Amino acid sequence: MANWNDPQPSNRNAWSGFGASASFAPANQAAYDMGLRRYMLSIYNYMASGVLLSGIVALVFASSGAAAAVFATPLRWLIALAPLGFVMAMSFGLNRMQTSTLKALFWAFAVSMGLSLSSIFFVYTGPSIATTFFATAAAFAGLSLVGYTTKKSLSGFGTFLIMGVWGLLAAMVINMIWPSQGLGLVISLLGVLIFAGLTAYDTQRLKEQYAYVAGSDMMGKVVIMGALSLYLDFINMFTFLLQLLGDRR
């Protein structure tokens, strides 16, 4: 599953150098706005393509019967942890990697996430998965629009949410050791709220980063890492919402 997947602390710090002492005053506001739209569209295209690829891989893997066989063996741990490995590799190695390497790792991550997510087809019904996916897509679009258009800074709100992610991870570990249906329900509810907030925060953060990377060699890397952040916001919101609303088999 995907509930561990948030590279936010490392990703957010990775680009903290941009703008520490920089100032940016676009000479041509129209050209700046057009560049910003292209930049954000590139991020959304990569993110949406990654989600689509993961969905196709998950559906094919689950339908083939291979998933049922693999999840009955210790290989299930490799499938579950592989996406985390890709996230860590991209987050900690991005300054040394070429943009093309980051792109390859992003697509490999999307495939590994698809393999991991295939397990939901054995737990929840197909219609409930589809309904939850489209509900998540609608919520994501609305929240991302809020983050893009709001004039209010969400930086303080984002710091609070990042702390919430770590608290959520701790609660999930506790619930794994001492299972509790009530705690599981609280975790799912908080997970939806936290990653909904992070969707708006990450959108605003990525929009503001454009001023410092526009026209530089770093922009390609920012686009890929931005797509990864939004992908994880979407997938985590989807899986937590599925735990709340999904019809179990």
Rank of each mutant, 00 (worst) to 15 (best):
A2L: 11
N11A: 13
N13H: 08
W15E: 01
G17M: 05
A20P: 09
S21T: 14
S23P: 03
A27V: 15
N28I: 04
N28A: 09
A31M: 09
G35L: 02
M40H: 05
Y44C: 12
Y44K: 15
N45C: 13
A48Q: 13
G55W: 05
V57Y: 07
V60K: 12
V60T: 10
F61P: 03
F61E: 06
S63E: 14
S63I: 11
G65V: 05
A66G: 08
A67F: 11
A72Y: 06
T73H: 09
A80Q: 12
P83M: 08
L84Q: 01
F86C: 02
F86A: 03
A89W: 14
F92H: 07
G93I: 03
N95C: 07
R96W: 05
M97Q: 09
T99F: 13
S100Q: 14
S100K: 12
A104S: 08
F106C: 07
W107C: 11
L117Y: 06
S118C: 05
I120C: 04
F121K: 03
F121P: 01
F121W: 10
F122Q: 13
V123E: 08
Y124P: 07
G126A: 15
P127M: 11
I129L: 09
I129C: 11
T132P: 05
T136S: 07
A137R: 01
A138T: 14
A139F: 02
F140Y: 14
F140N: 01
G147C: 04
G158R: 13
T159Q: 15
F160H: 03
I162P: 01
G164M: 04
G164N: 06
W166N: 08
W166D: 02
A171N: 10
M172K: 12
M172P: 04
M172L: 10
M176C: 09
W178S: 14
P179G: 08
L185K: 11
L185Y: 15
S188D: 11
I194V: 10
F195D: 00
A196L: 10
T199S: 06
T203A: 04
Q204W: 06
R205P: 00
R205C: 04
E208M: 07
Y212K: 03
A214D: 04
V222P: 01
M225Q: 11
G226P: 04
S229W: 00
L230K: 01
Y231E: 04
L232C: 01
L232S: 00
D233A: 07
F234E: 02
I235D: 02
F238R: 02
L241A: 15
Q243H: 14
Q243K: 14
L245S: 15
R248H: 14
R249I: 10
